[in-house]
Simulated assay, not measured.
Amino acid sequence: MAPKTPAGFRAAAALVKPALLASTRRNWSGGENLPKDRGFIAVSNHVTYADPFTFAHYLYDHGFAPHFLAKAPLFDIPVAGKFLAHLDQVPVHRGGSQARDAVEASAKLLERGDSIAVFPEGTLTRDPDLWPMLARTGAARMALAYDVPVVPIAQWGAHRLLPQYSKRPSLFPRKTVTVKAGPPVDLEEFRGRPLDIEVLRAATDRIMATLTSMLEEIRGETAPAKPWDMRREGGGR
């Protein structure tokens, strides 16, 4: 059984869900792939600032209280920061002695059977056609270090609700948002091996290839042969 949803999450949902229900049509599937008996890492592609809301909505309505890894400065914002901390969201510090705190906090959540929600790309995709780009290795590292499954959750359509980089939503007419969870990514060949860059890169690429394949099916289109690499192509905006 998934951990019981805390009251704080139910209160947050009562504030956010009505707006999402009024502005979106949900095309959801794959909920049977979300583990009910253990903690797991849910990974998704990232196109718009609306993605965390639709991602969280999907997980919440399937019985999971989503815990995001969020930039540490967000926790310094009055009221909002306390709210994030109360909901067990995980602050991520870049560098310094606190950098490992996010990993340890995530481990505690996973051990108690919670889900961690991660955008492996770390930022909005820079791919011109909004396909997933080369991702960071943090999700794979956590999955292999703590022996938990990675569940790919592809989503498409939230960018019509809130265009990429925009902060002004287009609420009407209602936008169809497709969210689909697939079976856990097969990472067995990487488990038990030293977590060097070769293993982490290969595991991460498999995770992102799975997400991309799911997104191809949703979009009815073919992704580029190689994912956008900000180191090679430039960061874009």
Rank of each mutant, 00 (worst) to 15 (best):
G81P: 01
D37P: 07
S115I: 12
P6L: 07
V43P: 01
K108A: 12
R38I: 01
K82T: 12
G30I: 04
A22M: 11
T210A: 11
V118T: 08
R191F: 10
F75M: 10
A181I: 01
R112H: 08
Y58W: 13
H46N: 07
D147N: 15
V90E: 00
A7E: 10
G182T: 04
L161I: 03
R201H: 12
K36H: 13
F119E: 00
H86K: 14
P128Y: 07
R160N: 14
A135D: 03
V148T: 03
Y165R: 14
D186E: 13
I41T: 02
G192Y: 09
M1N: 11
R112K: 15
A225W: 05
G220W: 01
Y58F: 15
H86I: 05
P152T: 07
A42R: 01
L34M: 03
V179S: 01
G30K: 08
H93K: 11
P66T: 02
P224D: 07
V16A: 11
V79G: 10
R25N: 12
A13K: 12
W28G: 02
F64Y: 15
A14Y: 11
R219S: 08
V177L: 08
L161Q: 00
I197W: 12
G31Q: 04
L162I: 09
R126L: 05
M208K: 10
A13F: 15
G39D: 04
S115C: 15
S23K: 03
G95Q: 11
R38T: 07
Q155M: 12
A7F: 14
S29L: 02
P163F: 06
T178P: 03
G8T: 13
A12D: 06
E221F: 01
W228F: 13
G113A: 02
R25A: 08
S170Y: 11
S170I: 13
S97Y: 10
I116S: 02
G236N: 06
V79F: 15
V47N: 02
H46C: 08
L215S: 03
A72D: 12
L34A: 04
P183D: 09
A14W: 12
L144T: 04
A70Y: 12
E104N: 14
A154C: 06
P78L: 07
A140Q: 00
G235S: 13
L144D: 00
P66G: 03
S213F: 10
L34S: 02
A105N: 04
G236H: 05
K226L: 14
V148I: 06
A202H: 02
P128A: 06
P184A: 07
E221Q: 13
P184W: 05
W228V: 00
M230L: 15
P152M: 07
D127W: 01
A145E: 15
K108E: 10
P194R: 09
R126G: 06
